[in-house]
Design a protein around this nucleic acid. Structure first.
Lengths: 156, 156
DNA sequence: ATGTATGCAAAGCGTTTGCATCATG
DNA sequence: CATGATGCAAACGCTTTGCATACAT
């Protein structure tokens, strides 16, 4: 994502208005490494604008996603998470507590042959790694059955 | 997933009961290549048991997923899809109509170094390709902005 | 006979939308 | 001043759950 000031300029250039609500949302997202959910962004922005509504947060997040300034992530917990880091990186997600670590790994080898792509025009590839984070490995109460929730290929 | 008969045996062995509802759900899923949603499974099973409830379908699908007999897929359309094919394969999803093609491509090169895995115990890797299916490439009404909805690394 | 599964309906959760009001450009 | 954004609350779609009844074992 661009910096807050650059985002404000971009919004104005597109005929969109820069409200205090939007500016604070930009600010909360700028450089945010925590992959926050909409609710988490809402909570953070409320520290600055207590009256902001959750709907405004959702609307602004969607605009940023549509503008290509924000990545929407599915971490498997049923809610969308948002990542302002547009650089080529992947995510390593804890299947138990949904903690996320950024991973930079070369996925250049992942190409589809013409037979494999079946006439699809390939637009992008999502690679997500699933595992147990250090903290959750300590916990004894993990049933161990939930890997299947993730539609995942077994680890090598 | 196992065959319907094998699934019935497995359920009984686990102390779970084999009802006509469950047997038909197994049957609809067995070898099903269509990555159906819960609603789609419900529709198909209703052809055999018109009185079955959607809740029963959801409950049985979840049991199968928990038993590791069914893969739950997120195709980006907001609902879960189910895949009885447990073999190592990936999915190529149309970002416009959510059509799905199975892809078998070697992801063995996707390994994380110890520094990359940050102490996580790696359980699996999800690779999903996004693109435009042949039919949707014909449509002119595609805004082309929605790639960002997918948290995706740009195509090579 | 025991205990689990079922159907139904309601609740739950994340997200979107309608509408009157407000404020940016 | 005109258009687009806001807040609120209601609606939404998917999924889960509570409960009384029915059925598999």
């Amino acid at each position: 994502m661009l910096t807050t000031e650059e985002m404000c300029r971009k919004f104005r250039a597109l005929g969109l208005k820069v409200t205090p609500q939007r500016r604070f949302i930009f600010q909360v997202l700028e450089g945010n490494p925590h992959h926050p959910s909409a609710e988490a962004v809402y909570a953070e922005v409320r520290a600055f604008i207590p009256e902001i509504s959750l709907a405004t947060v959702y609307n602004t997040l969607r605009e940023l996603v549509d503008l290509g300034e924000l990545r929407e992530l599915n971490l498997g917990d049923g809610k969308s998470h948002y990542d302002p880091d547009l650089s080529n990186h992947q995510h390593l997600v804890c299947v138990r507590c949904h903690a996320v670590a950024d991973v930079t790994c070369d996925i250049g080898g992942l190409t589809l042959t013409p037979e494999q792509s079946r006439g699809y025009r390939l637009l992008g590839t999502d690679v997500t790694f699933y595992g147990l984070c250090p903290a959750c490995q300590q916990q004894a109460d993990w049933p161990g059955q939930a890997l299947h929730l993730w539609g995942v290929s077994p680890a090598a």
